[in-house]
Every structure is written in structure tokens, then in C-alpha cells.
Amino acid sequence: MKLVTYRHNGKTSIGKVEADRIIDLPRNDPALPDTMLALLQGGQDTMARARAVRGDYSVPLSEVQLLAPLPNPSKFLAIGMNYRKHVEEAARVGVQTPPTQVWFNKQVSCINGPFGDVHLPAVSDKLDYEVELCAVIGQRCRRVSREDAASVVAGYMVCNDVSVRDWQLATQTMTVGKSFDTCGPTGPWIVTPDELGDPHALRLRMWVNGELRQDDETGSMIHDIYAQIEHLSTAFTLEPGDLLATGTPSGVGVAMSPATYLRAGDVMRAEIDGIGAIENRVVAEPV
């Protein structure tokens, strides 16, 4: 399934995409919840019920506004330095290779829709892009082995880990520079694992104003998704709807020579094969 949160005629709901239409889940089956988080929290039985919904009520995809599929997760975590070529380019600008997985928080207030504007902060001119595959946790879990990790994933979506580089590098945690409002575009939908196939065999790309900046395969991760889940769940419980941004490949603006940051009017397009694309315009932050 491709699961979406969408707005149509002023009403927000959830649905599944089939061809060029969205089949509304709660309207076709009132026993289903009307938010994505509640759908995931319902577990496998609720997801099976969603799969069985027929298209008695649907709307054209072209007539809706797609929103962030999961606007209110309890956690939005991201791993840094997880693609081999990205580690190499980071070393060229003085960032050392970490000996283990390096995780940071993106505050959930940064979450943005797949086509929402991204603000160029009034306090910085060092805004940067990072295309990433985002894994969505589907069940409450702790101490998950790498071998069992696939079973706790509800699906995958495209993420742009937009970063305010000077604020990011000012502290070891990186959290503030990764969490400015609007700097977490996700979407356009959650693709369930049965439809996507192997998440480590996907091409991911980022364009800025039509220029290809990033282009790699998810198989180039240093720590694959299942190792990431094993690592995190050793420390704390993962909850349904938690978001894991799984790393970005080489080609980010800060590593270009000279460093090339985003400006108002720039358009970022992040695309992952098997999922789709999100596109976000940079605009000056309202003051």
C-alpha cells in the first residue's frame, strides 16, 4: 500500500493510493481511525483491515493536498555519516569518521509536507539539503535483533534532512541545526515493505533547480536499516510511527568547492525509486 495523509475540501483524512486516486480509509470503513499514527498504533489487524478497504469512496489524487504522512510521531531520529562517499567528502572538510553509529534528534516540530515551502532562516545563510530514505516504525519494540528488524517496519518514505549548517556544527548534538521549523519534509506517502521490496536496493537522488546534486544507492549504507534498528532499540523503546532517517549520500552543498548553500527561490527535488518524489521550494523565513 501507499498510505497518505491528505486534505480535500477543507477536511483532513488518511487513505491509500491506487492508480491516480486516493481511497479514503475511514470513510469507507468507519472502524478505521482517521490519523496515520492511530492507524499504525492499531497494529497488524488494523493494517490488514486497511488493505481490505474497497474504493467505494475515493478522490482524484490531482485534487488533494498531500500532507506529511506522519505529522506527529513521538520521535524523529536521523543517522549521520552513513554513506561511504559522504564520509569521504566530509573528511575533506575536516569532519572525522565516527567509530560507531551517530544519531541525532530532529525535533518533530520541523516536520513539513512533501510539497511545503522550506524557510531560509533569518539567522543563517547556510541552508543545505540531504536526500534520505526514511523508515517508519510499525510496532512498539525493544531489543530487536538485526534478523528480526524488518518485522517492525511499517513502511518507507522520502525525507529531506534539511540542515542549517552553522547551527548544526556549533554543538556536538547537532539537534538545533537539524530542527528549524519546516526543515523536515517527508512523503509523499508511506510505502509498505511488501510493495517496496528490498529497501537496500533503491536509487536515491537530489536535484536543486534541476541540477543533479546527489545520486547513490541505499546499498551503499555503512550501517543498514536493520542494524540501525538493532542499535537504537538496544537503548530505548521504539514506538509506532517513529521516524528513522537513514543517512544521506555524497553531494551535499557544504562539501562542494566552494560550499554552495540554498537560496530563496531554489527548488529541491528528492526522489527514491519505488517510492516517489518530494519537492520543496526555499522561501525567506516570514518575520
Rank of each mutant, 00 (worst) to 15 (best):
V4N: 06
V4M: 03
N9M: 12
G10K: 07
G10T: 11
V17E: 06
E18R: 05
A19C: 06
R21K: 14
I22P: 01
I22C: 06
D24P: 02
P26N: 02
D29W: 11
A31N: 14
A31V: 10
M36D: 05
A38D: 15
L40R: 11
T46H: 12
M47Y: 13
M47E: 05
M47G: 10
A48R: 15
R49E: 01
V53R: 10
R54W: 08
G55P: 07
G55H: 07
G55F: 11
V59K: 03
V59M: 07
L61M: 12
V64E: 05
V64P: 02
L66V: 00
P69Q: 09
P71V: 01
N72C: 06
L77E: 04
A78K: 00
A78L: 05
I79Y: 00
G80W: 02
M81W: 14
M81L: 15
Y83A: 00
Y83V: 00
R84D: 07
H86C: 04
V87G: 03
E88N: 05
A90K: 09
A90D: 13
A90I: 07
A91P: 01
R92D: 14
V93N: 05
G94R: 06
T97Y: 15
T97S: 09
T100M: 11
T100A: 13
K106N: 05
V108Q: 11
C110K: 14
I111C: 02
I111P: 07
N112E: 07
P114H: 14
F115R: 13
F115T: 11
G116D: 15
V118N: 10
V118W: 04
L120H: 11
P121D: 04
V123R: 12
S124F: 11
K126D: 09
G138H: 04
R142S: 13
R142C: 07
R143V: 13
E147M: 13
E147T: 12
S151A: 10
A154N: 12
G155F: 06
M157R: 12
C159N: 14
D161H: 03
V162E: 02
V162Q: 04
V164Y: 14
D166C: 11
Q168M: 09
Q168T: 00
A170D: 12
K178T: 00
K178P: 06
S179E: 01
S179G: 13
F180L: 11
P188R: 07
P188I: 01
D198V: 04
L202T: 00
R203T: 04
R205Q: 15
M206S: 15
W207D: 12
N209F: 07
G210C: 10
R213L: 04
R213K: 15
Q214D: 04
D215Y: 05
D215E: 10
G219V: 01
I225V: 14
I229F: 09
I229Q: 02
L232I: 13
L232E: 01
F236V: 09
F236S: 04
T237C: 10
L238T: 03
E239W: 15
P240S: 12
L243F: 02
L243M: 10
G247S: 02
P249Y: 00
S250P: 04
G251S: 02
V252T: 07
G253T: 00
V254T: 11
A255D: 08
M256Q: 13
P258H: 02
T260G: 00
D266L: 09
M268V: 04
M268R: 08
M268Y: 10
I272V: 08
I272S: 06
I272E: 10
I272F: 04
D273P: 08
I275M: 01
E279I: 06
E285N: 09
P286Q: 03
